[in-house]
Design a protein around this nucleic acid. Structure first.
Lengths: 218, 218
DNA sequence: ACGAGATTTAGACCAGTGGTCTAAATGCTC
DNA sequence: GAGCATTTAGACCACTGGTCTAAATCTCGT
């Protein structure tokens, strides 16, 4: 059989984990250190001792290598997102489950510095977002399902398009995360715990049905 | 006098408006069409009929050219931000002034498509943000002053660091703006007006003091 | 064990990037 | 018009991600 219908991605996937790490370890180091656009493919290749030809045999382009790097780190994250939150039948429980979910993800990111760096790159660079469009859509769909479930039981406001609420929520998550990353050094642990509890309120404030607070706005 | 203490920026500033436009018009077209990083300096130069040497005589680097482009478009925006909002003495009036300010800025951006494109680039590309760090800090300071004034009269929650509220507010502004830019085509004017009123509530929700709504959160 | 055919690999090469530098042209003043 | 500072053109640099060819290697039927 000719290789015309075998994508580089599949070829890479067929390699064993040991061999894949020979690519992904240097790539991850480079992407974490320089982000996506400023990462140099040539530098990665030199570091990994691989040639251009080999690279484009296994990865269609730079984006595919980034995606593979991210995929490896993301393994094990999916199982943190259990479905309990979708089953909640009243707002109090719903938000409690959301808070627990958020805490789990936050803890995972705090433990895995490399993953946090990759995700921050993904957040900051449009080119990286294009490279990972599929994964991002999956994540977006997850958040959308969550918000829709919240709307169904009246925990989330239903007077605005879901896509707008999703966009706002995603941005708020990364913004708050980013702020904590920037200011973590200046906080002791007690402060950080207190703040992150309050920051959770910040996150969900735009989602609360507007009738719940006094409408003294123009 | 030798030119060792004259910066490229000053040299460009000394040109008359007619001459400056010969640089800025092609630069603006390129930046609007391709963003910052993907804009090609060589293409701009070819378009403007200028040489490399001349370019680096007037602009230290690509970023300085982008900054000059943005500066020209931003002239006239500052006067839209009058100080009435800072003088408000009770929450209702404060939010009313904020809404008016937001409406003015939104209208300005809707009228000036090029400015909107440049600002969107500024929002999306880290490299552009670094090039315009000074202007961004000025804007951040403006928002911070506004929020501090709001906190002083109890219109804005005071239980979280101002810098966090500033970060969240800035991101929400661009996110909501972005959503509307993406979905404007699918909305008729009446829908858009209604939505943008509601979206304003979305914007300020994280800023409202938390005691104002029932704390049924974990 | 061998040779044909497919797969994998190395790395020269490409058009492009932002930025530097030299040397000529130009402008300005005495 | 001489002499000097400023301005200008564009060759050149190291580098980018990506393409392509030709050689090496591997696989497999005999």
């Amino acid at each position: 059989m000719t290789d015309s219908d075998i994508t580089p991605r599949k070829r890479f996937h067929a390699l064993d984990a040991r061999e894949r790490a020979r690519w992904l370890d240097p790539a991850e180091a480079e992407f974490c250190a320089h982000g996506f656009e400023n990462a140099s493919l040539n530098r990665i290749l030199k570091q990994a001792g691989m040639s251009k030809g080999r690279s484009y045999h296994y990865f269609a382009d730079k984006g595919e290598l980034f995606r593979a790097t991210l995929d490896r780190r993301m393994a094990g994250i999916a199982e943190l997102c259990d479905a309990a939150v979708l089953a909640a039948k009243e707002p109090g429980l719903f938000w409690q489950e959301v808070a627990a979910l958020g805490a789990r993800l936050t803890a995972a990111l705090q433990k895995d510095e490399r993953l946090a760096a990759l995700i921050r790159t993904l957040h900051q660079e449009r080119a990286a977002q294009q490279a990972c469009a599929v994964q991002l859509d999956v994540f977006r769909a997850r958040v959308e399902a969550l918000l829709t479930a919240g709307q169904a039981i009246g925990a989330v406001r239903g007077d605005l398009p879901t896509s707008l609420l999703v966009a706002v929520t995603l941005q708020l998550i990364v913004t708050v995360d980013h702020w904590f990353a920037d200011h973590a050094a200046a906080l002791d642990m007690a402060q950080e715990q207190l703040l992150s509890r309050q920051a959770f309120g910040l996150l969900i404030a735009p989602l609360i049905p507007p009738s719940q607070f006094g409408d003294d706005l123009p």
